[in-house]
Design a protein around this nucleic acid. Sequence first.
DNA 1: CGCGTTATTCTGGTATACAATATCCCAGAA
DNA 2: TTCTGGGATATTGTATACCAGAATAACGCG
Lengths: 231, 231
Amino acid sequence: MLVFRVVQIESLKIESGLKDRVYDALKSAIVQMDIYASEELPKLDERQMAEQLGVSRTPVREALARLEHEGLVRMVPRRGAFVVRKSKREIVEIIQVWAGLEGMAARLATELASDKELASLRSRFVTFDSTDKASAAIDEYSDQNIRFHQSIVELGKSELLKSMMDRLFIQMQFIRRHSVRNADRTARSVSDHILIIDALEARLPERVHELVVGHGLSLAEHVNEHIDYLK
Amino acid sequence: MLVFRVVQIESLKIESGLKDRVYDALKSAIVQMDIYASEELPKLDERQMAEQLGVSRTPVREALARLEHEGLVRMVPRRGAFVVRKSKREIVEIIQVWAGLEGMAARLATELASDKELASLRSRFVTFDSTDKASAAIDEYSDQNIRFHQSIVELGKSELLKSMMDRLFIQMQFIRRHSVRNADRTARSVSDHILIIDALEARLPERVHELVVGHGLSLAEHVNEHIDYLK
DNA sequence: CGCGTTATTCTGGTATACAATATCCCAGAA
DNA sequence: TTCTGGGATATTGTATACCAGAATAACGCG
């Protein structure tokens, strides 16, 4: 049985230690990698990475452990760390969970978001795309799309919700780069967004929840049916 | 003559390293602690714990890092690791997220659960409580209640969903021990469960989703209004 | 006698050393 | 020539050593 000493905690200072910088470096490196390009899984060498970053293996291992917990990396005992390649099923699960969480965020937003915030949401996302969706910048629309969903999360005003969705979002980055830019889906997406904003302004929690979840699940279904480069 | 079958070793290999055992030991120790009993936060001393467990500090630190990531422990740079005490707001957020995920699980279950599984769900959870809810075992009902919700999660058949809810569940353990056993809530809970099972059997995704979410959120509200020992 | 300053100690963060084991290559036999 | 087995090598897992900063105690000054 473990015995713990008891102390009083006073200040909670937040310093970004070495391991955090290593973590950030590794994460961005991993996200940048094109996982689905080669057949072989890239292996992450601790020594090599430590040397490249100019630190010892210790913070590298801590960073890898965090990345493993977030699902970006798999550490096999005595074998090393590997970047994980998600199966289609796993990707679909991620999107489904995302949908559930975003739905809850939107639901909470009907109680917690101010009129001003909702007005801002509408002005930022409705005026822009609906007019010239067919024009040029599909990438720009894609960014806009992401910002819309992240705004929804913000309006839910739940730190936990936000942090969990951030973690899932990292995983979705992989897919986003490859995701088909489907004009049909884009159009439907825009109209869905309008419906969602309407329901938010009408303060209808159940309806918003259902709209957001349905919107998210349609993406899951689309990925499940049309994305074939995933095993 | 002996013939050996060729097996896939990777899936069978269950090597629990030293850090995993340390992790399990720490987690159970922390969960057992009564966090809200004393005013002071227990501090976790790395050296002391390493000595008690007969290992070096390294695996202890790795275990602490994992626990921090799961939200049970907070590591303050150069100050040490502390068991976290959740604020009421954080508890409410946990329950809300839980509700969102469980709702999604139930929704998925309307497509993925077999008739047999749903029948089993009904037989296990309806017959039992509705008759003698006022009788004796409130604790037993509480366990039954948990099993019901975990069954819902299982039926969603999403590993990700399950793992995320397991993590949240650990956090809720703290609260559960203190949670008020309210007869009124218990009664409503039972009838809610019946409605949920009905909707599952009717394969109505939106309705099940809404029922489960509503059920979960009612707990969040209850905690928010009636639990005062949380700061 | 009390408060502020400084010195010591204690603890966590990082680096490094050691041990265990998986991988790889080559030699020898079928 | 190919397959198997054993050893060399490389890499991870764990332990220990060292360093920096914070908590604490001791000391001196008002």
